[in-house]
Amino acid sequence: MNLVLSDRSLACLEENRSDLTYLDLSKLKIANCVGCFGCWTKTPGRCVIRDDAVKVYPLIAASDRILYVSRIKYGGYDTVMKTILERSIPVQQAFIRLLDGETHHVQRRVLPKKATIIGYGELSSADRQIFCRLVERNAKNMCFESHTIHFCSEDEVEDVVRREVASWTRS
C-alpha cells in the first residue's frame, strides 16, 4: 500500500486516487500521547485514546511505501507530524531487541517500507543536518528499508509531492 501522510492539505492529491491513500493530518483529531504504556501493557496493539490516531497507525504499519510531508522545527518534525509519530507506538511491543548492535523495540506486524520525507520551511543548515540524523534514527524504529529526504520551502511542497508521487507510478 502507498501512503501519504501530510501535516497540511495537498491540492495535488485531493482527487480520489486508487494508487495511494492520502491523509491530511491537520484535519484529524489527534491528541498527544500521554505516555501511559497502555498500548504495550494493558491493551497491546491498541491505544487507549480512541481518537483519529487509531485509524492512522494501522495504515502506517500496513504501508510498504510512505511519504511523510512535515514542517521542520528545531531540526525535527513540527507538532502535527510529531504528534502522530508519538501516538504510533502501538505498532511496537514493549520488549526490546538488538538491531545493528543497538537496542530497539520489537515491531508488531509492520511492513518494511520505502520512506520519503519532505521537510519544508525556512530551513538552516543546522535544521537539515539534525533532521537527516533524526531520520537515520527513525529508520531503525519505523521499519524503513530505505529512505530519501527532500528539503524545500513551503511554496515548493506541492511540486515536490507531485514529482515524488509521479515517480512511484513510474517505478
Binding site: T41, G45, Y57, P58, P90, F95, I96, T103, R109
Partner: peptide
C-alpha cells in the same frame, strides 16, 4: 528489560503472550 515489562504487564492483568501480539488494532 523483558522481566521489567512482563512484571509491568502482570500488574495490568496482561500476560507476556498478550503483550507480544503482532496484531495492531486487532488486525
Amino acid at each position: 528489560s523483558s522481566i521489567y515489562w512482563e512484571e509491568y504487564g502482570k500488574r495490568n492483568g496482561c500476560s507476556k503472550e498478550e503483550m507480544q501480539t503482532m496484531l495492531i488494532e486487532g488486525k
